[in-house]
Amino acid sequence: MGGRTKGKGEARVIALPADFRLASTADVKASLADALGASAAELDGAAVERVDSAALQLLLVFRREAAARGLALAWSGVSVAMREAADVLGLSQVLELPASMPA
């Protein structure tokens, strides 16, 4: 169950799966790698119910590479589960999670 991507002009939307844990990271990684070729991308984490550090680590690497490539990146949704996990792991800031966003 990889993140689905759909074109939105040039901005790619990557919908993160409900079960966004280690076993799903290979699929999501492929979607993210694909999105690196676009000029802008949106991460949609609204549907994420279960998440772990492997998943957040993946997003982190993606954001860093995207920033290096000058890709415009934004969050279009962050679930409670995802925000909570990022807080515990001390990753909310580096992931640039929006201060508040309806899940």
Binding site: R21, L22, A23, A26, D52, A54
Partner: peptide, 10 residues
Amino acid sequence: LRTMPAYKGV
């Protein structure tokens, strides 16, 4: 079990 992708991390 660990060789099965679905059981990595379980």
